[in-house]
Amino acid sequence: MKQPPSVLLPLLRSPFQGELLAWLFLHPEEEYAQVDLARRFEVSPASVTREVDRLSAAGLLATRRAGNMRMIRADTDVPVARPLTELLALTYGPIAVLGERLAEVPGVEEAFIYGSWAARYSGEPGRVPNDVDVLVVGSADEDDLYDAARAAEGVLGREVNIRRLSREAWASPEGDPFLETVKTRPLVRLQMGEGQ
Rank of each mutant, 00 (worst) to 15 (best):
P83Q: 12
G107A: 09
V137H: 11
E110L: 11
I113G: 05
M71F: 12
A89V: 04
A118H: 08
I72A: 06
R70D: 08
A148V: 07
A81L: 08
I113N: 04
D75F: 11
G107Q: 05
P94Q: 13
D147L: 15
V134C: 13
G107K: 03
P125W: 08
V137E: 11
P83M: 13
E104D: 13
Y92D: 00
L156C: 05
E153D: 05
G107V: 01
R127W: 12
L98D: 03
E153A: 12
E100K: 06
P83K: 10
M71E: 11
G107E: 04
A118Y: 09
A111E: 02
A119G: 09
D144F: 11
G67F: 12
G154Y: 13
S139G: 10
G123T: 06
N68A: 15
L145R: 03
E86M: 07
G126P: 00
A149F: 09
G138L: 05
D147G: 12
A111T: 00
D141C: 04
V108K: 01
E104T: 04
A148K: 01
V155S: 10
A118C: 05
L88V: 02
D141T: 02
A74C: 04
V128A: 15
R70N: 08
G138P: 01
G154F: 13
D133V: 06
R150Y: 13
L87Y: 02
V97P: 01
Y114C: 03
D143E: 15
G157T: 02
V134T: 11
V80I: 15
E110Q: 14
V132L: 11
A81W: 08
I113D: 10
Y92V: 00
E104C: 03
T85M: 12
R120K: 01
D131R: 00
